[in-house]
Nucleic acid binder design. Structure first.
Lengths: 138, 138
DNA sequence: ATTGAAAATGAAAATGATTTTCAATATCAG
DNA sequence: CTGATATTGAAAATCATTTTCATTTTCAAT
């Protein structure tokens, strides 16, 4: 049986090769959609019924640490709020103190148009958030 | 007592003017940081101790609907994952079917540099997510 | 192949956040 | 003032995530 490259990478990092991990890895590696832990759980149990949800959480954490998967942010997914400025603006957040300021981002138009042309998607919305250190924290 | 403009806007939309709402509105309007519901709850109770957490959730929902506050996405805040491509890439998600594809976004460099210059922040990280309709959904 | 230390597992319990339900209360139009 | 109705907060219900722990599995060293 030849292992998935992600399994080999995990192995090189000291993780053991197990059936539960294999099921989660294969589910994630095959998907072209963003999946929540429960969705991964349901899908992966088709090939590995004994899988526990806790193992899904732990494996996703390991895969994210290895840079093999990334987080996708969803419209209703984060519960933190801040004043909305008039017009369309983007956020810049200080990682140290949490201070937030917003800025105009019209310059994105051309990037977005070129992505739309290249992918065939009709782009209707975008989010941009920057992180860093504010003048007094750096 | 002169009402905060947000209270007036809520009133015009048919919401009644109450002490609980006033406390939440003032907390949000004054803050330069992103706040979670619990943080709003704790802060707002300083001026309105009888406040219930449920009312915080409901008022935040109303304020978001009115476009007076916006959601802030946090690093660990969303639990949905997808394959991470090699190198730094951004995501484009289909709102209809959830299909996700990623693209390069080097073009952001100049925007980010100009923001950094203008704000004095040292920008260390950025997230960009686009939403729209994929070729087969539109 | 066997063994045994250490890692990994899944079930269950604990925790924490969010939503629903509901009787009591407050607002505001008339 | 009054009453219809929106709003409230407490408590319960729900749902997602984390912790705990006894058992099982992996794999390096025999």
């Amino acid at each position: 049986m030849t292992e998935h490259p992600w399994m080999n990478q995990l192995n090189e990092q000291g993780y053991r090769l197990t059936g539960a991990r294999r099921a989660v890895v294969e589910t994630m590696a095959e998907s072209t959609h963003a999946l929540t832990p429960i969705e991964v759980y349901d899908k992966a149990r088709e090939s590995y019924p004994a899988l526990g949800l806790v193992t899904v959480y732990r494996t996703l954490e390991a895969l994210e640490e290895q840079g093999l998967i990334q987080r996708v942010h969803r419209p209703e997914g984060c519960q933190a709020f801040i004043t909305a400025p008039a017009g369309h603006q983007h956020l810049l957040l200080c990682k140290q103190c949490g201070q937030a300021i917003s800025f105009e981002g019209d310059d994105l138009e051309s990037l977005i148009n070129s992505i739309a042309r290249r992918t065939g998607y009709q782009v209707t919305e975008h989010w941009l958030q920057l992180f860093g250190l504010c003048p007094s924290c750096k």
